[in-house]
Amino acid sequence: MSSTSTTPAVALEATGLGKRYGRKAAPALDDCSFRLPAGRISALVGPNGAGKSTLLALAAGLLHPTAGTLRVLGAAPGELRDRVAYLGQNKPLYPQLTIADTLRMGAELNPSRWDAAYAARIVEEGALHPGQKIRGLSGGQRTRVALALALGKRPALMLLDEPMADLDPLARHDLMGTLMADAAEHGTTVLMSSHIVSELADVCDHLLLLGGGRIRLGGGIDDLLAAHTLVTGRGTAADLAPHTVVESRPAGRGLTALIRREGPVDPAWQTEEPSLEELLLAHLRSPDAPALLTPATTTAPLAVQA
């Protein structure tokens, strides 16, 4: 995992970020603040309409915020376009171009950083011929070409909006493998939105859960899991004080609850560490649970550490 000296320790930093698509509409993002440390592979999760695509498009410099600021690799969004790759949900490619033409476009648009051999290899691994037209490709093949276009510019930050939604399991596995290999070799920071929690659990080491226009859970996945406990026992939610109860459900004569620990848990409760899926579902079902951001993911009120 190498990182060049020009890569800042923070890939993405939002401060009071807001985006509203119209005067009457509820804001997609509202006073959203967080920090994504460089080198992480982060899952952007949230219910439909939570603002995931908006946040990714803001980071890519395709939309402008209506409030607050967003810094991308230490600069304004769009300023370092050659070091940020964005793969939109609909993977816009020119259908009339061949694969070779598409990659040549990548080379022309990214003259300083383009790695032609690498882009060509990603295409070849999918058994695609450079002379094929984009129009004739399947969804998975198009995603592969789009990924080759994105990785060929050797980005420091990859922004992926539902990258694997239309792929069969094999193509998904192969392309995720390609992406992970790139991250292993170059220390690329990845932020990707997805609904498929089981897929994220293997690939990601960092989580940003969006809800109500803000980050509700943010941090390293191991740290977030370790901060929570699943408890089961005979008692009431009130007995669980001083812990924060994220979600509680009846279980026989007692209850089972996901708590955020404040100190040790009373041994009368049976405890288990939650899975990522359990952690996410509990928070999605309880939109009013207080937010939790680990220190590295919180925006510091003062200076940014070098």
């Binding site: 596995h173 192969d174 290999a181 293997d202």
Partner: peptide
């Protein structure tokens, strides 16, 4: 195998291999 080789074949996070 290097972390790169493992994650390319298994599609898991590189830090898991390390």
């Amino acid at each position: 195998p290097t972390a790169r080789e493992v994650v390319e074949a298994t599609a898991i996070n590189p830090n898991t291999v390390l």
